Simulated assay, not measured.
Amino acid sequence: MRERSDRTEAVDSATGVFVTHRNLLFTVAYELLGSAADAEDVLQETWLRWAGVDPETVREPRAYLVRIVTRQALDRLRTLGRRRESYIGPWLPEPLLTAPDVAEDVELADSVSMAMLLVLETLQPTERAVFVLREVFDVDYDEIAEAVGKSRPAVRQIARRAREHVAARRPRGAGSPAEHRAALQAFQRAVETGELQNLLDVLAPDVVALSDGGGIRHALLQPIVGAANVARLLAAGWWRRQAPRTAEFVQINGGPGLLVRVGGEIDGVVAVRVENGLVTGAYHVRNPEKLSHVGREVVVSR
């Protein structure tokens, strides 16, 4: 009887520790994978491994759990890379409906933004893990080395290389959340009216438009680059043809976005990247397999 009681107490203790760190673990997995569904799978795998460990033998549970999540995410990321090679059309990260207060943590909001997740996609799996753990979650080099199976000097080199890579590609001059929302509102008005000049006024010269239907819903099969090309596409009326359509302003991946419904059903999400008051990136996710986490808020944290 006592043995069963001890076992129950151990499970309760393990559960409590895991729940305490769950939001952090989800955020690590999501930033490594760009997919909430895959991040949830990684968390389930992590819990199964954690449940078999006596928490009393673990000196730093947070670091231990982050190591497990990182290893599981890296394994999955390598598999996903092969799967994405055959993806129909542009691949965009799975959007999250986030709480308004996420925007107050500028570094966290930037790290989960659609724009940054796309930059992270250009890194090799180990580079991505090292960058995310070091730059976003401030994990020390020894812990990272153990998580990715590299030496400390190798991890430092990988971190430097990843920082340089990201610095050359990350958004610049993004401005405040208020400026971001203002640009998004102007973008929406311009799209709804279809007036070409209004569109050109809010688009940066090198703007890129991407849409992700996953081969399930109609979407662009190639990126559209340049203000004139993007404006002509939007002015052509694809947005207005989806009637009855509504667009609700929400927080998507830590920044202002639009949750689009057609006939009352969620049809997609529009997120934009804003730099110096102009839209430099427009991301439209319509793949229904990627919209399960925009119907309710998802907690991300550091």
Rank of each mutant, 00 (worst) to 15 (best):
A219M: 12
A204W: 08
N198M: 15
L210D: 05
P177N: 14
G215S: 09
R189Q: 10
E192P: 02
R241K: 07
A159R: 00
Q188I: 07
I224M: 12
Q157H: 08
A236D: 15
P177F: 12
E164H: 03
P171N: 12
R169D: 04
A186T: 11
I158M: 02
Q222D: 12
G173P: 08
S176H: 02
G213I: 04
L233A: 13
R160E: 11
A183W: 02
L233H: 15
L220M: 15
A168F: 05
A168W: 03
D212L: 07
R161N: 13
S211E: 07
P223C: 08
A159M: 06
V207T: 00
F187G: 01
S176D: 01
G226W: 00
R189W: 06
E164W: 08
R163A: 01
A183S: 02
G173T: 07
P177W: 14
R160T: 12
L234P: 04
L221G: 13
H165P: 00
A183T: 04
R181V: 11
A167H: 02
Q242I: 09
R170L: 10
A235P: 02
Q222H: 13
Q197L: 13
I224E: 04
R217K: 15
Q242N: 10
A228V: 15
R170P: 04
I158L: 02
L234N: 03
V191P: 02
L203K: 04
L210W: 04
A190D: 01
V155P: 00
A219D: 06
V207D: 02
V155W: 00
H180V: 00
Q242V: 10
A209Q: 12
H180L: 04
